[in-house]
Write a protein that binds this DNA or RNA. Structure first.
Length: 288
DNA sequence: AACCCGACCAACCGCGAGTAA
DNA sequence: CTTACTCGCGGTTGGTCGGGT
């Protein structure tokens, strides 16, 4: 459908309801913003402030919808926006908060100063969903969420610690030893201060706290452990396979597992020491 | 050099909540 | 109470760019 050079259902009732009815169809411009348009919008907001976006579009002489002006300002022109790659800490925040809130992008964005909901959403879709796709998991499945909790997030914590110059003491932070283990197996046997069984043939790992784990399998990713990952590990006796692709920094696979194991790992990840460190890293002192 | 492909991200769309008339 | 309108959110699309072949 073409309406005055526009495509789609621009004039549909819902769209009109959404506030696009302030301009005749032929007046509306779509697509990438020009420098001139940006300058007009910036100048207008500087004088009149944010809000009343339909008025902005009209009074500033922009041939854009109010929605388009708002989006351009919030996602690109606003002065305090951060540009550039999303940091490890920011990634960790996103993963952590997404586990709590799901796709509440704007809510998550409130904890990432200078980042927009759009940016976070894009990160999630391009990075995280890609992982899920490669693991043949649904991104919202319990398996994938558990993998986030027990593999990806701990590993990020370790990396943040490493980059901040702190040593991940395995005795104090047993979960880190697991992520370290995931990275190094099978070339290097396990070395932790907890009771560890290192078996070069089975690459078994005695889990933290000497908890007995059932052997129930709950396959998530049928292909994991098939050899397409360079690094693989198994949490002994619990049926959980952890795999890490050495060629790519964030490629991993979690296959199987058990609620008891996951809760124990989770408890250790969120030990008081770790929480204190993490929240300091993520949210600053004000958060706690 | 040309083409392909995946990653990234800006922008659009539909919808629902809130609110004023 | 109803209607019209604004705003914001989450999902989706499409353009651009860089790396690989």
């Amino acid at each position: 459908m073409e309406v005055g050079g526009l495509t789609g259902d621009f004039r549909s009732p819902s769209t009109l309801k959404a506030g696009n009815n302030q301009m005749a169809a032929g007046d509306v411009k779509k697509g990438p913003w020009t420098e001139e348009e940006d300058a007009v919008l910036i100048n207008y907001v500087r004088i009149h402030g944010e809000g009343r976006w339909n008025s902005v579009a009209h009074l500033a002489g922009l041939r854009r919808t109010g929605k388009s002006c708002r989006l351009r300002w919030l996602n690109y022109l606003k002065p305090d926006l951060r540009r550039g790659n999303i940091t490890l800490e920011e990634q960790l925040t996103i993963l952590d908060l997404h586990l709590q809130w799901g796709n509440r992008w704007s809510k998550i964005a409130k904890y990432l100063p200078g980042r927009t909901d759009n940016e976070i959403k894009n990160y999630w879709r391009t990075r995280v969903q890609k992982q899920a796709k490669q693991l043949k998991c649904d991104v919202n499945s319990k398996q994938f969420r558990d993998a986030l909790r027990h593999v990806w997030i701990p590993r990020m914590i370790e990396r943040i610690r490493a980059s901040s110059g702190q040593t991940a003491t395995t005795g104090q932070y047993p979960d880190y030893s697991m992520t370290s283990y995931v990275r190094t197996v099978p070339e290097v046997s396990i070395s932790t201060t907890s009771s560890t069984t290192s078996d070069s043939s089975s690459e078994c790992y005695k889990p933290i706290n000497d908890v007995d784990f059932p052997t129930q399998m709950d396959p998530c990713c049928p292909d994991s452990g098939s050899g397409r990952f360079s690094d693989q590990a198994q949490v002994a006796g619990c049926g959980t396979d952890l795999s890490m692709d050495g060629a790519s920094d964030n490629m991993w696979s979690l296959d199987g597992g058990d609620d008891d194991l996951q809760s124990v790992l989770w408890d250790n990840i969120w030990s008081q020491e770790n929480i204190g460190f993490l929240h300091g890293q993520l949210y600053g002192e004000d958060f706690m």
